[in-house]
């Protein structure tokens, strides 16, 4: 393990009007590790993950990426750091008027100054990895949800980020295509990609996470390795949450 974590949050707070969404969150993500954020809806996990790349600007706190501080009050600083931290969204958010290939090459070209031919070569290699090389010239509307999400993942990878944030990447997908997206994410984890994942996929959390972080009411309640977290949760609030999703899972399978 390196000396300083790749992503380090200290005292991150965010208020929306009268609602305090986050209460002074501390979180460290080591390089090469996978941190899974879980919690009931409204617990602040999506807000927290957006605070990591400034889509939601924290009111207070400090953020370090690879040891260097990000000036959280300046948009320019966020724009710079966002090229180093990718993000994948629930609704894929591919640019619908651009082909799959162009979706992937436009930011490396404009933001990293990669020549068009090289950007396309890299994009095709990434598409091949997720089994979508044949879709390069298609528009997003011609792809299934699972295929679009895989493109969204490699679009983020094309920027060669130090870490990738996933905000409920499988929540909008059909059950039968969830697997294809989770497989890609597991591959990334195996290769040592640093990932922060908000998800309801407990199987994924148990199998892939190095650390599970449980949030409720804008606070981190408990964090632990997945084995300890799922089998021996320490806090009452965690136990209640886990039993509620388990009984839901059993009802779904009954």
């Amino acid at each position: 393990m390196s000396a300083s974590p790749l992503i380090s949050l200290r005292g991150i707070a965010k208020r929306f009007g009268a609602h305090q969404a986050l209460h002074g969150i501390d979180l460290d993500v080591e390089a090469g590790s996978v941190v899974v954020l879980i919690g009931p809806s409204g617990s602040g996990k999506s807000t927290l993950i957006r605070c990591i790349n400034g889509l939601v600007r924290p009111d207070e706190g400090t953020l370090h990426i690879a040891g260097s501080p990000v000036d959280i009050h300046h948009e320019r600083a966020w724009q710079q750091m966002r090229t180093e931290v990718g993000m994948v969204f629930q609704d894929y958010a591919l640019f619908p008027h651009l082909t799959v290939l162009r979706n992937m090459t436009i930011t490396p070209e404009r933001r990293r100054g990669v020549p068009r031919a090289k950007a396309e070569e890299e994009a095709r290699a990434l598409l091949t990895r997720v089994g979508l090389a044949h879709k390069a010239q298609d528009y997003p509307s011609a792809l299934s949800g699972g295929q679009q999400q895989r493109v969204a993942i490699v679009r983020a990878l094309a920027m060669r980020p130090k870490a990738i944030l996933f905000d409920e990447p499988t929540s909008a997908l059909d059950p039968e295509t969830i697997g294809s997206v989770l497989d890609v994410m597991k591959d990334l984890a195996r290769e040592g990609t640093t990932m922060v994942v908000v998800t309801h996929e407990m199987g994924f959390a148990r199998e892939v996470a190095d650390r599970v972080v449980f949030m409720a009411e804008g606070r981190i309640v408990e964090e632990a390795p997945p084995g300890a977290f799922f089998d021996a949760p320490r806090h009452e609030r965690t136990r209640a949450f886990l039993s509620s999703i388990r009984s839901f899972g059993e009802a779904a399978h009954a």
């Binding site: 957006r50 790349n53 400034g54 889509l55 724009q79 710079q80 966002r82 090229t83 990718g86 993000m87 969204f89 609704d91 958010a93 591919l94 640019f95 930011t107 404009r110 933001r111 969204a152 679009r155 983020a156 920027m159 944030l165």
Partner: peptide, 16 residues
Amino acid sequence: KGLREAAFSLGLSPWR
């Protein structure tokens, strides 16, 4: 809003 967040998260400026 989703497309704006996606573009920003890739490092594009508001103008781009």
